[in-house]
Amino acid sequence: MAAALELVSSNKVFGGDLRKYKFKSAALGGLSANFNLFLPSQSATAKVPILFYLAGLTCTEDNGDVILLAQKGSFFEPAAANGIAILFPDTSPRGAGVAGEDDDWDFGTGAGFYLNATTPNYASHYQMLTHVTLELPQVIEAAGLPVDLSRQSIFGHSMGGHGALTLYLASQTNQYRSASAFAPICNPINCPWGQKAFKGYLQGGVEEAQDKYDATELIKKHKGPVNILIDYGTGDNFYKQGQLLPENFVAAAQGKDVTVRAQEDYDHSYYFISTFAADHVNFHAKFLRQ
């Protein structure tokens, strides 16, 4: 049985409502979990499609909406125009009490990497793949919220871009109709962020991650059509440091319907995301309205 939702707050925005909910998460080992949900005005009369936004390292459920709201409305204005709900999960469990989970900014709290951990110390709580793909849709449905779960898509930034691409490509049920990403970690088995996460969360380390949690490896083997949009900035320091590796993804995706755009001089920040936010929401709208 899905856990009951508690409404924490609600704010009117672009004719719709931005709501914060919390609930006791079974996937995260019984910890309290928060998420934010934007419901457009169209949800007052009919169920609407839903777009999941996965945030990056150190972020919470608030980063994608509260920060971006201050920059030209960002996701909410095009989502309202298209009648699309947007759900913003947290980036990791909170307060799991695992030794060392708060030692580094790029691992542990705020850095769940949207995978299911298999190392004994993290496996009890760090089940972010299950939390995002199964648990959150279940609690939304159980609460009777006006969302059409037969029409889901997913996007994200940085670590969240990694999550969006891998959850989309690895889905055995074609759960998401489309995926997009801002400055995603495209080939994490070959970059420091990904290697650190996989060695810490997975008993099989990088080798275990290769077939499950690496978009570049997954796109090589993916059968059937894909609907993917990626933007990254050539001025992004993390791109320059070899953390993102979009060229590897492009090479692996030859012959597939993938659009990867190098945006000249843009960095890794929310200014970059807000500039192209409407492009991404409108991209998903093409598939969600069908």
Rank of each mutant, 00 (worst) to 15 (best):
E6H: 13
E6L: 08
V8C: 11
K12M: 11
K12P: 07
V13G: 07
F14V: 07
F14C: 13
D17P: 00
A27W: 05
L28S: 02
G30C: 11
L31Y: 04
N34L: 07
F35L: 11
F38S: 05
F38N: 07
P40K: 12
T45I: 01
T45N: 04
T45D: 03
L51N: 03
L54T: 02
G56F: 05
C59G: 00
C59D: 03
D65A: 12
D65Y: 07
K72A: 14
F75R: 08
E77Y: 11
F88R: 06
D90A: 09
S92Y: 06
R94D: 09
V98N: 08
V98Q: 10
A99Q: 10
G100D: 06
D106C: 07
G112Y: 00
G112L: 01
F113E: 06
F113H: 06
Y114D: 02
L115G: 01
T118M: 04
Y122L: 00
A123V: 01
S124D: 02
S124T: 08
H125M: 00
M128W: 02
L129H: 12
H131F: 15
L134I: 05
L134D: 12
P137C: 13
Q138K: 14
E141R: 15
A142N: 15
D148A: 11
I154Y: 12
I154V: 15
F155H: 14
S158D: 13
Y168L: 00
S171K: 12
T173G: 03
R177L: 15
R177D: 03
I185R: 10
P188Q: 00
C191S: 14
P192E: 10
G194F: 04
L202T: 12
G205C: 15
E207F: 14
E208I: 14
Y213G: 01
E217W: 10
K221W: 14
K223H: 08
V226N: 00
I228N: 04
L229N: 02
T234N: 07
G235M: 01
D236I: 05
F238S: 01
Y239E: 05
Q243E: 11
Q243N: 10
N248V: 00
A251E: 03
A251C: 00
D257R: 00
V258P: 06
R261D: 09
Q263A: 10
D267T: 10
H268P: 15
I273V: 15
I273F: 14
I273C: 15
A277P: 07
A277V: 11
A277E: 10
A277H: 09
A278G: 15
V281T: 06
N282L: 13
F283K: 12
H284F: 07
A285L: 09
